[in-house]
Design a protein around this nucleic acid. Structure first.
Lengths: 146, 146
DNA sequence: TAATTTTGCATCGTGAACGATATAATTCAA
DNA sequence: TTGAATTATATCGTTCACGATGCAAAATTA
């Protein structure tokens, strides 16, 4: 039996599990405000820069537009964002935060810190976190180009 | 504007993205054999120990049975596994590899190495990988108990 | 043993992800 | 300028994930 097949030797399974469990940890904080985790990511993108076309949001999150479009349509239905055709380019759909969308930033102000604390442990702390960030960034950069 | 909200400061987004992109990298290798990534994970579990109840497989993957059940039903339909009631405990559904399921291990023998190579970069290599593994394991352990 | 609780699995509904495809607007090239 | 290629978004189908719920078997307890 090939030890390369052992589940405990798989980087991907660790990433997959860590990602899922951390997303689950976000859930109670977000669902209390009617949000899902991917919707929260869209908010992070728009809080940095409002009024972006779907494509820019998708690219920023490394997602396809066919994932982001319905996601944003749900957010529109919830009154968090508006969608309107681009003036310069009528193909684009510009996504803008509503007041409710901006208000959520105030309501969720403690979420990033809470989630940061949720992963603090022996090997991941203020000192070592940058190394982890660098490793994940390098992996993402390498896979992105493929 | 709170810098804690910056997308680039979020560990979770990195994990989420790295996990998704790495899963995407697996896809061409797996879909060539009619497999999805979660189905591949189930195979890894069964190759280690055949004839396990749904619950043990789910626990090993940190998934709920309501995720694993339909996933395994699809694998049954593909002739990769069989499902049969437990003899000792009739509530259990024992999952067993078929010959086709075992044959896949031979067909996929190069996948783990290929995927390992896919993430090798400056900061993640033979020397540093154990640190990354430890960090992810610690994060998983911390989140698991919540 | 009978009644209650727990456990293991399944079903259902919703929201991602993503490949494939469609459509309309824009850009490019002849 | 017209026709072809590209781009931006949307729709559709399939497969996860997962909360909620249902049900039957097993374990617990009265």
């Amino acid at each position: 039996m090939n030890e390369k097949f052992l589940l405990d030797n798989q980087l991907c399974f660790r990433l997959y599990t860590a990602s899922r469990l951390l997303t689950q940890a976000y859930n109670p904080l977000l669902s209390a405000h009617g949000l899902t985790y991917p919707q929260y990511l869209v908010l992070l993108v728009l809080w940095e820069k409002d009024a972006q076309p779907v494509n820019d949001i998708a690219k920023r999150l490394y997602l396809e537009t066919n994932t982001v479009t319905p996601l944003i349509q749900r957010m529109e239905k919830e009154g968090i964002v508006t969608r309107s055709k681009g003036e310069k380019d009528a193909r684009q759909m510009i996504v803008r935060l509503t007041k409710k969308g901006w208000d959520l930033q105030v309501e969720l102000v403690d979420v990033p810190t809470a989630m940061g604390n949720a992963v603090i442990c022996e090997s991941v702390n203020t000192e070592t976190a940058p190394e982890l960030f660098k490793m994940l960034d390098d992996i993402i950069a390498k896979l992105k180009t493929k």
